[in-house]
Design a protein around this nucleic acid. Structure first.
Lengths: 242, 242
DNA sequence: GCCGATTTGTCCGTATGTATC
DNA sequence: CGATACATACGGACAAATCGG
């Protein structure tokens, strides 16, 4: 089942750029040309191009055209602003992923947990600790909190595989928005025990609140990353001056 | 001169949300209502709302409406996916900014620098080291590389104030895109000397390549942040399933 | 379960403004 | 100046999801 038209055009242009069918700094065909080649309206073309701009693949300039500024990144690593599960990320980079479940409990959010996670005090939660291996190396230690009445039927077996696959394919949940905060924190005893930190005494921490399609925050996760393998990519576009 | 219509609507809705004129989880007025209140077309409304979605302020749901998911963040710190200069960021948080210039030289990119920065080998560059203070505390150590034939007339005096103000107001350069990579690295002797790291032995590093409106990459900067004050916010939207 | 009203999502067409060359 | 290109804005049409009766 093909998706929306503008998504198809977006993906087609994206793969063309990735396959270097346009040179770095080259201008893409003009909107009017693209209207002809894809036989669609100008609006549709512009939506596709806007997505490429947001990805940092191209840059537009009024009166000039759309310039390809994509350069293949040697060290592709973590997502480019999207939401991607650990396994998806591993598959994309042709790496083997393994997950070890360290802890699987249920708890009720007290004031302290509520403040840290953003869940309402008194919420019933699943709390898990999971250790993610990439190509055999322990890289990420995750502390997951899930809202129990949304993520129903979660089991240790599922947690060892892929929770997101369960959420999307079994519970048919739509994941929509994720607010993330990145910091650097001192290591804890648990970090030291499971991650091979060498002589680093701190690690990269990504805290995220994830909302489903109904607007309820159903997940809070703190991902603690081994610093020597942590890399986070981002693309920023400057808003027009105030 | 007021800006574009959809930007005005975007900003108006944004401040209304920030001022909590809509409750958390409340639905905003429907598009048809907003068309009436702002007397514009549906397209214009939708552009404004799309920007709010990208900011993580609201979430849309087909058939339902537009839901406010903004929560005031206590620890506002670094940009939400935008490009912001150090001084802009400080002003937004009502803090005092000071910049010390440690080093101001010119150099030519050799193979090693070219590989690290992304500039072509042989490029003539300005290289600066700057130390940024916030409320009197040294927080960020910046290594800046600027393309000399684009950032013409750069002086130590300008570098001590705000380079971006010079670029935009004097050189009338439009900053458009910035590709950023965040990592955690071990501290160097320079870091140790200037930043008060305590017993941290590593720091947060943001490397960025910045492009101007003509599509030329004119800046490479490595920002080395003191970990205890580093915080990076981001909002991610899940693309529809493959 | 069905139907209709509401709401957002997608797509098309057109007109005008503005920057580049 | 004119041609080309992207930016903004308006209008309308239909699809898909949600909700209430």
């Amino acid at each position: 089942m093909p998706k929306m038209k503008y998504i198809q055009i977006y993906q087609d242009l994206k793969t063309k750029i990735e396959n270097q069918e346009y040179e770095f700094q080259e201008l893409l065909p003009s909107e009017n040309t693209l209207i002809f080649t894809y036989s669609c309206s100008r609006n549709t073309i512009r939506r596709a191009i806007s997505a490429l701009v947001a990805d940092g693949y191209v840059q537009t300039q009024q009166g000039k055209g759309v310039r390809n500024i994509f350069q293949p990144t040697p060290q592709t690593s973590f997502t480019i602003g999207g939401i991607e599960s650990f396994r998806e990320s591993a598959a994309r980079n042709h790496q083997t992923a393994k997950t070890a479940l360290l802890c699987f409990t249920e708890l009720t959010a007290d004031e302290k947990i509520a403040k840290r996670t953003g869940f309402a005090p008194g919420s019933s939660l699943y709390y898990l600790q999971r250790l993610h291996y990439l190509d055999g190396k322990p890289l990420i230690l995750n502390h997951n909190y899930f809202l129990k009445n949304v993520v129903t039927g979660l089991t240790p077996e599922i947690a060892e595989h892929s929770i997101y696959e369960y959420l999307e394919n079994t519970l048919h949940m739509l994941i929509v928005t994720s607010k993330r905060i990145m910091t650097v924190e001192k290591m804890t005893q648990i970090d030291e025990k499971y991650l091979e930190l060498g002589d680093y005494n701190c690690l990269a921490v990504v805290s995220s609140q994830t909302y489903n399609g109904d607007g309820v925050m159903f997940e809070y996760t703190q991902s603690r990353h081994r610093p020597d393998y942590f890399c986070f990519q981002d693309n920023a576009v400057r808003r027009r001056p105030l």
